[in-house]
Design a protein around this nucleic acid. Structure first.
Lengths: 160, 160
DNA sequence: TTACTTGCAAAACTTTTGCGCCACG
DNA sequence: CGTGGCGCAAAAGTTTTGCAAGTAA
C-alpha cells in the first residue's frame, strides 16, 4: 500500500523520476496538478507566484522543460505564439477542439483513437510515445444558440 | 474547361482568393507548390532567394501568414521552435509521425480519420475547419533494421 | 491613380543561459 | 559537504511592424 502523502500528484511523479524537490518545484508541481486548463508559462508563473513569491519565470521555464523531457508534461501549441502545458495522461486521453473565431479550447475524448494511433505507429515500425490531436472548427450558428459576439482570435494571446 | 496557366498551383489559389499577385508572391507560391516537405520560413526564404534574390525574409513571413489566414497553407509545429508550413490538402489528408530520437518526420495516411474528426466536430456543434495530428514515436529495434546512429533530437532545429 | 506590397531595420516577444549564491539530499 | 537549482539580467532566436518607396490592377 502506498503511504498517503502531502505531495501533489505531479510532485510525486517528480520524486519517482529522481528529481530533487526544491520549494519552487513543489509549488510549480502543485499549480500544474491543480490546473484543469492549458496554462502557458506566463500563466503558470502568475499562479505559482501567488503561492510563493520567491519564484522566477526562468525557473518556470526550466521546470516545464525538465518535466516535458521526463514525460510528465506535454507541450501544446494552440496557435497563440506561446507553448501551453498540461499533465500527461495515461489511459484516458483527451484531445482539443479550438474555436477558430475566439481561440477557446474544448476538450473531447475519443477512446478508439489511441489504439488506432498505436497501430499506425506499429505498422510504421515505431513504438508509440505520445500524440497531439488538434481540431479546428467554427461554431455552427444553428439551434437556439445566439451568437456571443464572435470576435476574431488575435494571433498573439489566445484564451484558455 | 479551365484554361491551362503558367501559374503554380498555389498562385492559382491566391488569384482565386483575390490576392494581388506580385513577383515576390509568385515566387513564394512556386516554392510552396514545389515543396514536398515542411519548410520553415528560413528555408522558404532560402529557396525563394535562389529563384529571385529580390525577396526579403519579412515578405516571406507576411506571405505565409496571409496564406495561412486564407486557408491555403497550414502551419505545423514539429517542436523545433520554428513554424513549418505545407499546402492545405483537400480530400486526401496526411499526418505526421515524428521520430523522437532524431526529429525526422514521416508522413502517413489514415483515410477514416478525417471523417471521424468531422463527426466529432459536428457532435460538438462545430463545422470542421482543419486539424493537426502528430504522432511521436521511437523506432523499434527489431527486424534486421540495424540502428543508424540514433542521435538525440536537439530542441532547436530539427530536420525535414 | 490608388490602395496594397515590399525592404530595411528596429522592435516586440518568447525562451534560453551565464554566473554567483543557495539549498536539497 | 557537494552537486545541482535558483534569481537576475543579458542574450539568443523568431516573428512582427513603422516607414518611405514601388507596383499591380
Amino acid at each position: 500500500m502506498k503511504s498517503q502523502s502531502t505531495e501533489s500528484r505531479i510532485a510525486q511523479l517528480c520524486i519517482e523520476h529522481g528529481l530533487k524537490m526544491t520549494g519552487q518545484r513543489r509549488v510549480i508541481a502543485r499549480v500544474l496538478s491543480d490546473a484543469d486548463d492549458h496554462p502557458d508559462v506566463e500563466e503558470l508563473y502568475r499562479r505559482a507566484s501567488a503561492l510563493d513569491s520567491r519564484i522566477s519565470v526562468a525557473t518556470v521555464y526550466r521546470t516545464v522543460r525538465l518535466l516535458e523531457e521526463k514525460g510528465i508534461l506535454e507541450r501544446r501549441d494552440f496557435g497563440g505564439g506561446r507553448a501551453r502545458y498540461e499533465a500527461t495522461e495515461h489511459g484516458r486521453h483527451h484531445y482539443h477542439l479550438i474555436d477558430v473565431d475566439n481561440g477557446k479550447v474544448i476538450e473531447f475524448e475519443d477512446p478508439e483513437h489511441e489504439e488506432l494511433m498505436r497501430r499506425v505507429a506499429e505498422r510504421l515500425g515505431f513504438d508509440f510515445v505520445s500524440m497531439r490531436l488538434e481540431l479546428f472548427g467554427k461554431k455552427r450558428p444553428q439551434t437556439a444558440q445566439a451568437g456571443k459576439a464572435p470576435q476574431a482570435a488575435k494571433r498573439k494571446g489566445a484564451a484558455s
